Amino acid sequence: MNGLYALKPWYADRLAGLRRALVARQVSPHTLTAAGVVCAAGAAAALAWLPAPSAALLVAVLLAGRLAFANLDGALARDTGRTTPRGALLNELGDRAADLLVIAGFLPLAPLWLVAAAAFATMLPSWVSLAGAAAGAPRRNGGPVGKTERCLLAVVAAASGWAVPVLAVVAAGSAVTAVVRAVWVWRALGQPETVVAAVARERVVATERAMATERDVASEKTVVRVAEPASSAPRRRPSPSPPPSPSPSSSPTLGSFPSEHDRSLPLDPGEVSGGITHTRPQSPADRGTRLRGAR
Rank of each mutant, 00 (worst) to 15 (best):
L114N: 10
A171Q: 02
L189V: 07
G146Y: 00
T213V: 02
R290H: 09
G173V: 03
P269M: 01
V169F: 12
S126D: 06
D99F: 05
E228R: 12
G132W: 00
T253H: 09
L93A: 11
A6S: 13
A41E: 11
T207S: 04
V155H: 00
A163D: 01
P51R: 14
D95E: 07
T122E: 02
A12T: 12
A135S: 11
L101E: 10
S160W: 14
Q26W: 13
A45F: 05
R139D: 04
R96V: 15
S264K: 08
S219M: 02
P238S: 12
S245I: 03
Y11S: 13
R25W: 12
P192F: 01
G3W: 04
I276A: 13
R14P: 03
L114W: 05
G136H: 02
R225Q: 08
V205T: 13
N2G: 09
E228F: 01
H278P: 01
G136R: 05
A52C: 04
E208M: 07
L15Q: 14
V145P: 02
G132Q: 00
A34C: 10
F120D: 10
A55C: 10
R292H: 11
A134Y: 06
L153W: 02
F257E: 13
S126Y: 06
V180F: 04
A119N: 01
L62Q: 15
L63G: 09
G65A: 12
G173P: 03
A197K: 12
G143M: 04
L90C: 12
R20P: 09
R201I: 11
T213N: 09
P238F: 04
A168K: 02
V226G: 04
R203Y: 08
F106K: 00
E208N: 03
G132S: 01
P138Y: 09
E92R: 04
E92P: 05
I103Y: 07
R263S: 14
T33K: 01
P53Y: 10
V217W: 01
V183W: 06
A188S: 13
D262F: 12
M1E: 11
A70V: 10
V223A: 03
A35V: 10
A75D: 13
C39P: 02
P240L: 05
S250D: 07
S174P: 02
V226A: 11
A24M: 13
R235T: 14
G270M: 06
L76Y: 10
K221C: 04
M123A: 15
G190H: 15
V179D: 00
A197D: 14
P234T: 07
